[in-house]
């Protein structure tokens, strides 16, 4: 979800005050905020793109098509896509159960959903190793394999779809479903034609965030995946090796690729939100 600033979307926002022009003090506030935002975020990210651009297109292309790098990108993107698909289905189901079902211990599930958000990523890796590592009580040793990448992504992106869909599902008017039922729609049809389309923007937003998060993931993989070239090495690790080898231009090239993905996600979110705003 990109920060939802939409004028006039809710009847509560008063257009008169929204059009408030800046006073001196708010102007200073804006100035300082923008300066800080630029120094912290915008200039450094521009520096990444500038460093990538300095070598020219051929250099950029050569870097990201380097055999080992290309393999890392492929593994990262494929795993991220797979994880996103799983999240779309499982996340929607989890949100459904949290909103529509009632059973003892449901509150605990709410807490569990947020753990991947709050847990430091390095700890997340250790946590997953305890059940899916060498000493796995289930006998599932994913450590140092491509599967571990998928698993780590799945863990860190768990809350995105759930937390986007849940509030929308809570807000759905019961009478809309009753109206569909009175027109002859059975439960499955109501879900497919009434509920799912209402959830679609939230699912899309959650999917975009979960994809972006997965593509850039690093911390949870450090201990889990072993970072084996061509096998379990992801894009972030490639960038880090380039930095450690003092190859900042190379690092910047791969980083630019990730930034493009992040930007694409931001654009998708913005478009989704405009669509929702139009629906009212």
């Amino acid at each position: 979800m990109s920060t939802p600033v939409q004028e006039g979307r809710t009847g509560l926002s008063r257009p008169t005050l929204l059009n408030h022009n800046l006073t001196v003090s708010t102007g200073i506030g804006l100035g300082i905020s923008m300066l800080w935002f630029s120094l912290l975020v915008l200039i450094p990210l521009s520096a990444v793109i500038a460093a990538a651009a300095a070598g020219g297109w051929t250099e950029f292309w050569r870097t990201i098509t380097n055999e080992q790098t290309a393999a890392a990108i492929k593994l990262t993107v494929f795993s991220a896509v797979g994880v996103t698909v799983v999240n779309v289905v499982a996340g929607t189901m989890i949100a459904w159960v949290l909103v529509r079902d009632r059973f003892p211990g449901k509150g605990l599930l709410e807490l569990i959903i947020d753990i991947p958000f709050a847990l430091p990523t390095i700890v997340a890796g250790l946590v997953l190793l305890s059940l899916y590592g060498v000493d796995s009580p289930l006998g599932l040793n994913f450590a140092n394999t491509g599967k571990s990448v998928f698993l780590a992504f799945l863990f860190v992106t768990l809350p995105f779809v759930v937390r986007m869909v849940q509030p929308v599902l809570e807000e759905l008017d019961e009478d809309v479903e009753e109206a569909a039922a009175s027109l002859g729609a059975n439960r499955f049809t109501i879900f497919r034609r009434i509920i799912l389309p209402s959830l679609a923007p939230a699912i899309a937003a959650g999917a975009a965030l979960s994809f972006a998060r997965a593509v850039g993931e690093y911390g949870s993989l450090v201990l889990l995946s072993g970072n084996l070239p061509f096998k379990s090495e992801v894009t972030s690790v490639r960038i880090l090796s380039a930095i450690e080898n003092d190859n900042r231009a190379g690092a910047a090239s791969i980083a630019t690729l990730l930034l493009v993905i992040s930007l694409a996600v931001i654009i998708v979110l913005d478009l989704v939100q405009r669509k929702v705003a139009r629906r009212g």
Partner: peptide, 25 residues
């Protein structure tokens, strides 16, 4: 509008890229 979209960028940028960006500047 641009600011409100960009403000969310840090959430979807890889931490390694964040580190690199700060390093370069």
């Amino acid at each position: 509008r641009i600011l409100s979209a960009l403000i969310d960028l840090p959430l979807s940028v890889s931490p390694i890229v964040v580190g690199l960006a700060l390093l370069l500047v």
